[in-house]
Nucleic acid binder design. Structure first.
Lengths: 204, 204
DNA sequence: TAAACTAGTAAGCAACCACTTACTTACCAC
DNA sequence: GTGGTAAGTAAGTGGTTGCTTACTAGTTTA
C-alpha cells in the first residue's frame, strides 16, 4: 500500500535530529530548545526521540561531537592546503568563517555550553576541542616563526588568542545582526589587520 | 525587641537583587538561574522578589541597565584619562579587562542575551550598548589617524571589530578555565600585538 | 512463517517554573 | 495614636519540561 512509512533506522534519525538541533539553534538560543521542539520540527512524536537518544544530555553531547568532527576536519584540510604557514593561517581563518556562515547555529550552541558551570562534561568537550584548535594554530605560528616570517619576540600564545578572538568578534557581530551575510568580507578585512600584526615588517 | 528586621526599601533591594544575579552568573549560566535561586541567595522569599520587580524579564532588563551604566562609565573615564588616543585605547582595553575580572558574571550574562532570538528587547539593549562602544573606539581611532599614528589605509571598522573581538577571546579563555586570574597579563600581551597591528611602522 | 527486534504512537507522571493570592507586619505622615 | 502604604511570608496555580510506560506496527532473520 502507498502508506508513506516514515520509519527510519536509528543512524539516519540521529543525524536528522542533530541537524534539527543546529538548525533551531540558528534562531532560537539552544538553552530554550525543548525535546518537544526538536521532535515536532522533524515530524516525530516527543517520545520517539528517546528511542534514538537516551537523554537530552546525550543528544547535546552528540551535537558537540558532530561540530568537533566536522569543524576540525575542515580546519585541518584548510591548513594542509597551503605550503606557506601564513597562507595556511589565512586559509584556516576563512574556513572557520565559511563554516559559521554555512552553519549559523553552531556558534550559538558552542557559546551556550561555555556558560555551563564548572565541570559539565559538555563544557569539557568544548574546552578539549578549543585546545586542539590552539595546537593547530601554534604549530602554524611556530613554523612561520622558523621561516623568519614573524616579528621577533612575538608572543605566539597571545597571537593564537588574538586569532581565535578576532573570529569570535566577527561571529558576535553576525549574531547581533542575526544574519551572516557580509561576514566573509568582514573576515577578510579583519584578517588583513591580524596578518600585519604578526608579520615581520617589510621595507615598503 | 532585638528582632532583626531585614525589611529594606525597594531601591536597596533592587540593587541587592541585581548584584545577586550577576554573582550567580559567575558560576551558573544565566539561562538556568531561577527566581527562586535569586530569592534564596539573598535570604528572601520567592514571592517577595516580585514586590521589587514585576516580572523576571523586567529584572533581567535592570541587570543589563546596570552593566551598561557601570561598564560604559568606566570605559569613558579610561578614554578621557589619556591625551594620546593610542594610550587611550590601551586604557580602555585594560579597563574593560579589569571590569570583567571584578565582575566575572557580566560576560556570561551578556553572551546569554546575545543568543536570544530576533528582536528580544534584551538583545536590543545589548546591541545598543555595543554600538556605543564601537563609537567610542571609532572616535579614538579617527583621532589617532588624524595624528598620523596609524597605518595608512587601515580599515577603522575592522580595527574596532578586532579590538572588541580580542577582548572576547580573552574572556572566553577565562570562562573556559573558570577563573579570571592571569587575565590581566594575557590582556597586556594581546593588546601589545593589536597595537603593532594598527600603528604605523617605525624605523627600529 | 514465526520469532525477535526496532521504530513508532499516545497518554501520563513527577518535578519545576514564573507568577498570584491572602494575609501579616513594619514604617511613616499627620 | 492611627490609618495608609510598603515589604514581607506561606501556600497555592496553571503551564511546561524531561522522561516513562503500555502498546502497535514495520523489518529482519532463522
Amino acid at each position: 500500500m502507498p502508506q508513506t512509512t516514515d520509519r527510519q533506522p536509528t543512524q539516519t534519525r540521529q543525524a536528522e535530529i542533530i541537524a534539527a538541533v543546529l538548525a533551531r539553534s540558528a534562531s532560537q538560543g539552544p538553552g530554550t530548545i525543548t525535546t518537544q521542539d526538536i521532535a515536532s520540527s522533524i515530524g516525530l512524536t516527543h517520545g520517539a526521540l528517546f528511542k534514538h537518544f537516551p537523554t537530552k544530555a546525550a543528544l547535546w553531547l552528540a551535537v558537540i561531537d558532530w561540530v568537533d568532527t566536522h569543524l576540525m576536519a575542515r580546519l585541518q584540510t584548510a591548513a594542509d592546503s597551503c605550503d606557506h604557514p601564513v597562507a595556511a593561517l589565512r586559509a584556516v581563518f576563512m574556513a572557520h568563517t565559511d563554516f559559521v556562515v554555512t552553519h549559523p547555529g553552531v556558534p550559538r550552541f558552542i557559546f551556550n555550553e561555555l556558560q555551563q558551570p564548572e565541570d559539565s562534561p559538555l563544557k569539557h568537550r568544548v574546552s578539549d576541542m578549543l585546545g586542539r584548535y590552539r595546537q593547530l594554530l601554534q604549530a602554524l605560528l611556530k613554523h612561520a616563526a622558523s621561516l623568519g616570517a614573524l616579528r621577533p619576540r612575538l608572543d605566539l600564545n597571545a597571537a593564537a588568542t588574538l586569532f581565535i578572538g578576532s573570529l569570535q568578534g566577527l561571529v558576535m557581530q553576525a549574531m547581533l545582526r542575526d544574519n551572516t551575510a557580509g561576514m566573509r568580507d568582514a573576515a577578510e578585512a579583519v584578517f588583513a589587520i591580524y596578518r600585519s600584526a604578526i608579520l615581520v615588517e617589510l621595507a615598503s
